[in-house]
Write a protein that binds this DNA or RNA. Structure first.
Lengths: 206, 206, 206, 206
DNA sequence: CATGAATGAGTGTTCATTCAT
DNA sequence: TATGAATGAACACTCATTCAT
């Protein structure tokens, strides 16, 4: 009997190596050779587990998304309403080194995705999924009476997305200024605003 | 010194071509040959005006920044206080196709900048400069009594930066959702909040 | 020695698979992996039965030759003289799909054989063997009074070889024009010429 | 002013190098690197003159065909009838080292062409062109009363093609046996047969 | 100054081969 | 014996860069 390897496990190994390489040298220098060696294999091994480099990169990006999704599912277990919404957002913010790495990966891919249909679709699909999740959480919180803003749930979700992406970029470029504390402060400004009757009343726009 | 003028003009031509190429095919496919031909020259001409490809890219990015800066100077001519702050922010938002192009360029570079010291420095320098400008505008508006939030001017500037970057990314990925109108709405939510006593009072955080 | 039988049988299986692969995708795309999978085995199995890829190819070519030889032995059983000569030639002509396949295999190898000593030797050995067989058949037909041409038996054999190869190539490139009927017609032109006194007399050359 | 090279000339240089490489090591070992170095250039130079390797190979094959065509035009200048037909055929036979090289090239490509549509088309187009030329020459010779065979001009052309290909292959595999003299002898057997009334009469088939 | 020919390192990918299981 | 994982050299091709003209 030959040595049987768990294909999925090997893929994960390679994708983890891909992350490390992108983190260390950037997406443009992430050659298949480097990825293979980072994973501890020769360059030829990649062909067993991935169709081509594109497959590796797309898979690596999707894996990042899956990690975030899983964490979001975990942190909302048993939590409801505004607290669940907040917990989900917190998981998407670059509050610690692990999540900062995810943000690095994400934004390394973003520039390339702007002109690469496949990658772009991955980004957009994830964005759509995340927006639906947020909208659903907003709706639930509103049903529980914790959100009172007159603005549509959709718009609130959009505001959240803008906050997350904005904070991620700023944290990547100016980590000293955009601390975890400041990120949470801005998040809570947003949450307070949509949940407070008085605040909303005064910020209503024509 | 007519030679110098020509020289600088030629650089501008090449950089404009660089923009068009990046917009059309993306930063990864922006080869020196393509840039040269897009500019209407042979590939060899680049060596006369730029040290190397990196020089071209860095210069192109800086040029984008200069364009934005110039527009900001223009729109604040004769305008003061909160109106000046708003005018500057508006120039940084991807409200029309021209500014969306700038955002495309900017974020095409961002991913690469994460692991390219030179580009990273350009981004950070521009960010620092923009933050100073914003902080200064906030301070002026506060002096004029138009901003009353107790939060530090710095933090307000940070919030603005987060809004701009967040909106830019969302507009690039979901242009149908993040319309110009919605961007302005979110901007005004922010401005109203920092300028309204009542709103601030209720959104104050521990 | 049942093991030996199995061993030989397995080789035959692989070689048959090799034929099918060459027929389907050509010699250049005939990878060891494809051959192994076509044979229903994993790629590693080949090492048990063949020294290397070259061994597989050489063996496949030899097998093709053996097939033809066997058919020639069969069709000449109980046949003599000119009829035997004709029967042998007929077996070498691409008159039906099976023999066309053999011609495909043969000429797929030929181009490579021109610069591959091992393959070249296989081709030349087979050619020499076939020429001896033809010469022998010509001699026998002459002894039986069925061949009267004054030209040496060797030359007649050479003419036959030229006809067979020429027809094979033309049939491969222009199957619509070089039908089985036309091949037989050309064959019989040749046979009539070498067997007819009058024809020879008039075609004698200075 | 830059160094201006004659593109067509450079292409010819590279194609000549391609021939030499194929002649020396065979089509399978004819790598782009080897071809470039044989031509006296670095590997990268090929990109200036050829789209890809396929372009090089197809061009090399076509060049071989052009050479033969040109020679055929030259040798038929001022020659008519059967003599013109014979002269054209002579140019297609591997009578000397130069023409043997052409035959090597031709048959190196043939095996690959069997499963490579592009190359196959080149072969077939050339074959069709050559057949038309031969048919036309046969018709002219017949009009001049030099060909009297009752067989259609088409069939005669086909016979010629079979002879040429058959002789080429045999000359490549057994150069010692298929001498130039023997080739010419076989050619003249064919020509005598189609031009001689008596011979035809006796070789007529049911 | 401008050209474009030429370079050669580097890329993703393929594949015959080896070998532990 | 049979597997298929792993190797690493080789491939065609790309591209920033150099440089003679």
């Amino acid at each position: 009997m030959p040595k049987i390897v768990d294909h999925e496990m090997r893929r994960q190994e390679v994708l983890a190596a891909t992350w490390r390489v992108i983190d260390r040298v950037g997406l443009d220098e992430a050659t298949t050779r480097r990825i293979a060696h980072e994973a501890g294999y020769s360059n030829g091994v990649l062909a067993h587990y991935f169709a081509d480099k594109d497959d590796i990169l797309v898979s690596a990006l999707k894996l990042a998304h899956e990690h975030v999704r899983e964490r979001m599912v975990q942190v909302t277990d048993g939590v409801m309403g505004l607290a669940a919404l907040r917990a989900v957002i917190v998981e998407a913010l670059p509050l610690d080194t692990e999540r900062l790495l995810e943000a690095r990966i994400e934004f390394s891919f973003l520039g390339r995705a702007l002109n690469a249909p496949k990658l772009r679709k991955v980004h957009q699909d994830e964005l759509a999924h995340f927006r639906r999740r947020l909208t659903s959480l907003v709706r639930a919180a509103r049903a529980a009476g914790e959100i009172v803003t007159p603005r549509p749930d959709d718009d609130v979700a959009a505001e959240v997305l803008v906050l997350i992406d904005g904070l991620s970029i700023q944290a990547l470029l100016a980590p000293d200024r955009i601390t975890a504390a400041m990120q949470l402060r801005m998040l809570d400004v947003l949450l307070t605003r949509i949940s407070a009757v008085v605040a909303e009343a005064s910020s209503a726009l024509g």
